[in-house]
Protein backbone atom coordinates (compact mmCIF):
# COMPACT_ATOMS: atom_id res chain seq x y z
CA UNK A 1 0.00 0.00 0.00
CA UNK A 2 2.85 2.32 0.84
CA UNK A 3 4.50 1.55 -2.46
CA UNK A 4 1.24 2.20 -4.27
CA UNK A 5 0.80 5.54 -2.59
CA UNK A 6 4.40 6.50 -3.29
CA UNK A 7 3.96 5.52 -6.94
CA UNK A 8 0.79 7.60 -7.20
CA UNK A 9 2.51 10.62 -5.70
CA UNK A 10 5.57 10.30 -7.89
CA UNK A 11 3.34 10.10 -10.96
CA UNK A 12 2.05 13.59 -10.19
CA UNK A 13 3.50 16.38 -12.30
CA UNK A 14 6.54 17.97 -10.71
CA UNK A 15 5.06 21.39 -11.15
CA UNK A 16 1.43 22.17 -10.78
CA UNK A 17 -0.07 25.61 -11.24
CA UNK A 18 -2.11 25.24 -8.08
CA UNK A 19 -4.55 27.89 -7.03
CA UNK A 20 -2.10 30.44 -5.69
CA UNK A 21 -2.40 32.56 -8.81
CA UNK A 22 -6.19 32.57 -8.63
CA UNK A 23 -6.01 33.53 -4.99
CA UNK A 24 -3.42 36.22 -5.68
CA UNK A 25 -5.59 37.65 -8.42
CA UNK A 26 -8.62 37.86 -6.18
CA UNK A 27 -6.91 38.91 -2.98
CA UNK A 28 -7.99 42.51 -3.49
CA UNK A 29 -11.61 41.43 -3.22
CA UNK A 30 -11.16 39.54 0.03
CA UNK A 31 -10.49 42.43 2.40
CA UNK A 32 -7.26 40.97 3.81
CA UNK A 33 -3.74 40.62 2.48
CA UNK A 34 -2.73 37.27 3.91
CA UNK A 35 -3.70 34.65 1.32
CA UNK A 36 -4.24 31.92 3.89
CA UNK A 37 -6.61 34.05 5.96
CA UNK A 38 -8.40 35.07 2.78
CA UNK A 39 -8.91 31.43 1.87
CA UNK A 40 -9.93 30.40 5.38
CA UNK A 41 -12.56 33.04 6.05
CA UNK A 42 -13.54 34.34 2.65
CA UNK A 43 -12.96 32.12 -0.37
CA UNK A 44 -13.53 28.83 1.40
CA UNK A 45 -15.80 30.18 4.10
CA UNK A 46 -17.99 27.09 3.98
CA UNK A 47 -15.14 24.85 5.08
CA UNK A 48 -14.37 27.00 8.06
CA UNK A 49 -18.03 27.36 8.94
CA UNK A 50 -18.53 23.61 8.92
CA UNK A 51 -15.30 23.15 10.79
CA UNK A 52 -16.61 25.35 13.59
CA UNK A 53 -19.69 23.18 13.56
CA UNK A 54 -17.50 20.09 13.92
CA UNK A 55 -15.77 21.58 16.95
CA UNK A 56 -19.09 22.43 18.49
CA UNK A 57 -20.40 18.95 17.77
CA UNK A 58 -17.37 17.37 19.43
CA UNK A 59 -17.97 19.51 22.50
CA UNK A 60 -21.67 18.59 22.51
CA UNK A 61 -20.84 14.89 22.42
CA UNK A 62 -18.30 15.30 25.21
CA UNK A 63 -20.78 17.20 27.32
CA UNK A 64 -23.53 14.72 26.68
CA UNK A 65 -21.25 11.89 27.81
CA UNK A 66 -21.41 13.12 31.35
CA UNK A 67 -20.22 15.81 33.64
CA UNK A 68 -16.72 16.83 34.40
CA UNK A 69 -14.74 14.07 36.08
CA UNK A 70 -13.50 14.54 39.57
CA UNK A 71 -9.80 15.10 39.44
CA UNK A 72 -7.41 14.55 42.21
CA UNK A 73 -6.87 18.09 43.27
CA UNK A 74 -3.17 18.60 43.53
CA UNK A 75 -2.18 21.89 45.00
CA UNK A 76 -0.32 23.71 42.25
CA UNK A 77 3.27 24.52 43.09
CA UNK A 78 4.56 28.01 43.68
CA UNK A 79 6.33 28.07 40.33
CA UNK A 80 3.23 27.10 38.42
CA UNK A 81 1.11 29.72 40.12
CA UNK A 82 3.73 32.39 39.53
CA UNK A 83 4.27 31.45 35.92
CA UNK A 84 0.55 31.28 35.28
CA UNK A 85 0.12 34.77 36.56
CA UNK A 86 2.97 35.87 34.33
CA UNK A 87 2.11 33.96 31.20
CA UNK A 88 -1.66 34.14 30.96
CA UNK A 89 -1.88 37.89 30.29
CA UNK A 90 1.02 37.53 27.86
CA UNK A 91 -0.68 34.68 26.03
CA UNK A 92 -3.91 36.63 25.79
CA UNK A 93 -1.95 39.54 24.35
CA UNK A 94 -0.26 37.23 21.83
CA UNK A 95 -3.64 35.80 20.85
CA UNK A 96 -4.98 39.28 20.22
CA UNK A 97 -1.92 40.16 18.19
CA UNK A 98 -2.19 36.99 16.11
CA UNK A 99 -5.83 37.70 15.45
CA UNK A 100 -5.12 41.25 14.34
CA UNK A 101 -2.03 40.46 12.31
CA UNK A 102 -3.80 37.58 10.56
CA UNK A 103 -5.06 40.04 7.98
CA UNK A 104 -1.60 40.77 6.61
CA UNK A 105 0.82 38.15 7.92
CA UNK A 106 0.74 34.59 9.26
CA UNK A 107 -1.84 34.40 12.02
CA UNK A 108 -5.58 34.28 12.26
CA UNK A 109 -8.48 32.87 14.17
CA UNK A 110 -7.27 29.31 14.59
CA UNK A 111 -3.79 30.25 15.69
CA UNK A 112 -5.10 32.90 18.07
CA UNK A 113 -7.75 30.52 19.37
CA UNK A 114 -5.22 27.84 20.14
CA UNK A 115 -2.93 30.29 21.92
CA UNK A 116 -5.94 31.38 23.95
CA UNK A 117 -6.67 27.76 24.70
CA UNK A 118 -3.09 27.32 25.87
CA UNK A 119 -3.62 30.17 28.32
CA UNK A 120 -6.83 28.49 29.43
CA UNK A 121 -5.05 25.18 29.94
CA UNK A 122 -2.49 26.88 32.16
CA UNK A 123 -5.33 28.29 34.22
CA UNK A 124 -7.00 24.90 34.45
CA UNK A 125 -3.76 23.22 35.46
CA UNK A 126 -3.25 25.68 38.26
CA UNK A 127 -6.65 24.87 39.65
CA UNK A 128 -9.07 27.19 37.92
CA UNK A 129 -12.47 25.86 36.84
CA UNK A 130 -15.46 27.34 35.14
CA UNK A 131 -17.02 29.02 38.12
CA UNK A 132 -20.71 28.96 38.79
CA UNK A 133 -21.04 32.42 37.32
CA UNK A 134 -19.62 31.40 33.99
CA UNK A 135 -20.72 27.80 33.53
CA UNK A 136 -24.29 28.58 32.54
CA UNK A 137 -25.64 30.64 29.73
CA UNK A 138 -22.63 32.88 29.19
CA UNK A 139 -20.34 29.92 28.58
CA UNK A 140 -22.76 28.44 26.10
CA UNK A 141 -23.19 31.73 24.28
CA UNK A 142 -19.44 32.21 23.90
CA UNK A 143 -18.99 28.66 22.73
CA UNK A 144 -21.68 28.97 20.09
CA UNK A 145 -20.69 32.56 19.28
CA UNK A 146 -18.11 31.80 16.62
CA UNK A 147 -20.46 29.70 14.57
CA UNK A 148 -23.40 32.01 15.18
CA UNK A 149 -21.57 35.15 14.07
CA UNK A 150 -20.33 33.34 10.98
CA UNK A 151 -23.81 32.20 10.02
CA UNK A 152 -25.35 35.55 10.83
CA UNK A 153 -22.77 37.34 8.68
CA UNK A 154 -23.55 34.97 5.85
CA UNK A 155 -27.28 35.47 6.23
CA UNK A 156 -26.90 39.26 6.45
CA UNK A 157 -25.10 39.14 3.13
CA UNK A 158 -28.05 37.24 1.69
CA UNK A 159 -30.44 39.92 2.94
CA UNK A 160 -28.28 42.52 1.25
CA UNK A 161 -28.84 40.78 -2.03
CA UNK A 162 -25.59 38.90 -2.19
CA UNK A 163 -25.02 35.21 -1.78
CA UNK A 164 -24.35 33.29 1.42
CA UNK A 165 -20.90 34.17 2.81
CA UNK A 166 -20.17 36.57 -0.03
CA UNK A 167 -18.86 39.75 1.56
CA UNK A 168 -19.02 43.14 -0.17
CA UNK A 169 -15.51 44.44 -0.75
CA UNK A 170 -16.02 47.59 1.31
CA UNK A 171 -16.85 45.75 4.54
CA UNK A 172 -14.95 42.52 3.96
CA UNK A 173 -11.97 43.42 6.15
CA UNK A 174 -14.06 44.50 9.11
CA UNK A 175 -16.45 41.58 8.73
CA UNK A 176 -13.61 39.10 8.63
CA UNK A 177 -12.15 40.62 11.79
CA UNK A 178 -15.48 40.35 13.60
CA UNK A 179 -15.99 36.76 12.48
CA UNK A 180 -12.46 35.83 13.41
CA UNK A 181 -12.71 37.47 16.82
CA UNK A 182 -15.83 35.49 17.68
CA UNK A 183 -14.26 32.36 16.25
CA UNK A 184 -11.11 32.87 18.30
CA UNK A 185 -13.04 33.11 21.55
CA UNK A 186 -15.13 30.08 20.67
CA UNK A 187 -12.17 27.95 19.59
CA UNK A 188 -10.20 28.81 22.70
CA UNK A 189 -13.09 28.02 25.01
CA UNK A 190 -14.10 24.86 23.18
CA UNK A 191 -10.57 23.50 23.39
CA UNK A 192 -10.38 24.23 27.11
CA UNK A 193 -13.78 22.65 27.65
CA UNK A 194 -12.67 19.61 25.67
CA UNK A 195 -9.63 19.37 27.91
CA UNK A 196 -11.84 19.42 30.99
CA UNK A 197 -13.66 16.54 29.38
CA UNK A 198 -17.18 16.91 30.61
CA UNK A 199 -20.08 19.23 31.22
CA UNK A 200 -19.07 21.73 33.86
CA UNK A 201 -21.35 21.27 36.80
CA UNK A 202 -22.27 24.55 38.46
CA UNK A 203 -22.88 22.95 41.81
CA UNK A 204 -19.30 21.88 42.16
CA UNK A 205 -17.71 23.82 44.92
CA UNK A 206 -14.11 24.15 43.64
CA UNK A 207 -15.31 26.58 41.01
CA UNK A 208 -14.90 29.59 43.20
CA UNK A 209 -11.74 28.57 44.93
CA UNK A 210 -9.20 29.57 42.29
CA UNK A 211 -10.58 33.05 41.95
CA UNK A 212 -9.39 33.87 45.40
CA UNK A 213 -6.06 32.38 44.40
CA UNK A 214 -5.88 34.65 41.38
CA UNK A 215 -6.52 37.68 43.48
CA UNK A 216 -3.87 36.74 45.97
Amino acid sequence: MGAGLAYAVLKLPAEAPGLSKTVADNIDMSGVDNPVTAVVVNFRGYDTLLEMAVLLLALLVVWSLGSEPQRRELAPGEVLVYLTGLLVPLLILVAGYLLWVGAVAPGGAFQAGSVLAAAGLLLVLSGWRFGARFSGLSLRITVVGGLAVFVLAGLAMMLHGGRFLEYPIAYAGALILVIEAAATLSIGLILVALFLGGRPSPDQSPGSRPESRAEK
Binding site: T37, P69, L98, P106, Q111, S114, A118, L194, F195
Partner: peptide
Protein backbone atom coordinates in the same frame (compact mmCIF):
# COMPACT_ATOMS: atom_id res chain seq x y z
CA UNK B 1 3.57 27.44 5.48
CA UNK B 2 4.09 29.67 8.55
CA UNK B 3 0.34 29.82 9.22
CA UNK B 4 0.23 26.07 9.59
CA UNK B 5 3.40 26.14 11.69
CA UNK B 6 1.77 28.50 14.17
CA UNK B 7 -1.31 26.33 14.46
CA UNK B 8 0.76 23.18 14.78
CA UNK B 9 3.09 24.57 17.43
CA UNK B 10 0.16 25.68 19.59
CA UNK B 11 -2.18 22.76 18.98
CA UNK B 12 -0.18 19.77 17.82
CA UNK B 13 2.54 20.21 20.38
CA UNK B 14 0.82 22.09 23.19
CA UNK B 15 -2.83 21.23 23.49
CA UNK B 16 -2.74 17.67 22.18
CA UNK B 17 0.13 16.96 24.54
CA UNK B 18 -1.76 18.36 27.50
CA UNK B 19 -4.85 16.35 26.53
CA UNK B 20 -2.89 13.12 26.22
CA UNK B 21 -0.97 13.63 29.45
CA UNK B 22 -4.21 14.41 31.25
CA UNK B 23 -5.77 11.24 29.91
CA UNK B 24 -2.73 9.21 30.91
CA UNK B 25 -2.80 10.63 34.43
CA UNK B 26 -6.46 9.65 34.70
CA UNK B 27 -5.71 6.23 33.25
CA UNK B 28 -3.11 5.60 35.92
CA UNK B 29 -5.32 6.82 38.72
Amino acid sequence: APDVALAEAAIGAGITGALLLGALARLES
